[in-house]
Computed example of a mutant assay.
Amino acid sequence: MKPYSVPYSVLMVCMGNICRSPTAHGVLRHKAQALGLQDTLVVDSAGTHNYHPGSPPDARSQAHARMRGYDLSNLRARQIEDADFERHDLILVMDWDNLALTEALCPPQHRRKVRRLTEFCLVQDKPVVPDPYYGGANGFEEVLDLVEDACDGLLGQIKGGRLK
């Protein structure tokens, strides 16, 4: 039995869980609340690497998210764990490396749950969410553009019952 009493759970995954995945976590959570889905959708995030356990999201990620109305301040980095594959209905990775690492960790019976976040984009046409960590402000804005688009597409599919 799933530990959550809600119908759908999404895990966002990047490398260190301080830039892209907490941004996606915060954006999806915010958009779900705006649609009144906060009681039917659980959102979480994790990293493929244990670089920053317990750390808040990168200050730049928080600042750019805040400028668009998203609060990431209560999120904390953690590494993906075995229980995540059972617990979550959908595991969305940010790039090809995270996809390969997550699939390698994932038990075969749960591999269908692992997908790229950008598969849900409605407008943007990029295969991955690029890592903004070593870049400038434009990188964090691009992450937000892609994440917002993908979260809109994802929520449309969830609301429409197209994801099981």
Rank of each mutant, 00 (worst) to 15 (best):
H49L: 13
H64S: 07
S55A: 15
P130H: 12
R87Q: 13
E119H: 11
N17K: 05
M94P: 03
S21W: 00
Y51A: 06
S61T: 14
L75A: 10
L122C: 12
D84H: 14
I80P: 03
H110P: 04
L72G: 10
L37C: 07
R60N: 10
L90T: 09
V93F: 00
L90G: 08
D97H: 07
R29Q: 13
E103R: 14
L72K: 06
H64W: 06
L90I: 07
G26D: 09
T118R: 07
R76D: 09
N138D: 15
Y134K: 11
V93C: 12
N138S: 14
K31L: 15
V114Y: 00
L72F: 02
E86M: 09
G26K: 01
R115K: 14
D89I: 03
A65R: 06
T40A: 13
L92K: 01
S21P: 08
M94E: 04
R66P: 00
A32E: 08
C106H: 03
K113N: 12
A24Y: 01
R29P: 00
G36N: 10
T40F: 02
H88W: 00
V128M: 04
H110A: 15
D89N: 15
N17D: 09
S73A: 14
S21V: 05
L122P: 00
K113M: 11
P56C: 02
H30G: 02
Q124W: 03
D82H: 12
L35K: 15
E86I: 07
Q109M: 12
L101F: 06
L35Q: 14
R66A: 15
P56E: 13
M67T: 15
Q124T: 02
A104Y: 01
P132R: 06
N50L: 09
A65G: 05
K113Q: 13
R76Y: 06
Q79T: 06
G26W: 01
H64K: 09
P57F: 05
A59W: 06
E81L: 02
R116C: 02
V129D: 02
Y133Q: 06
C106F: 07
E86R: 14
R111T: 11
H110C: 14
A59K: 14
R68N: 10
R60L: 09
P130K: 10
K31F: 13
D58Q: 03
A77E: 06
R111D: 02
L122R: 14
L35Y: 01
D84W: 03
L92T: 00
V27R: 04
Q38C: 08
Q62M: 14
H52I: 02
V129G: 03
H88K: 01
L72M: 05
H52T: 07
H30R: 13
S73M: 10
D131Q: 08
E81R: 15
Y133M: 09
R29A: 15
M94Y: 03
C106W: 07
V43N: 11
A104P: 00
Q62K: 11
Q38I: 05
H52K: 04
H30P: 01
G47L: 04
L92F: 01
F120G: 03
Y133S: 05
T40W: 01
V42P: 00
L117S: 04
S55F: 10
L72P: 05
G135W: 09
Q38L: 10
L99H: 12
R87H: 13
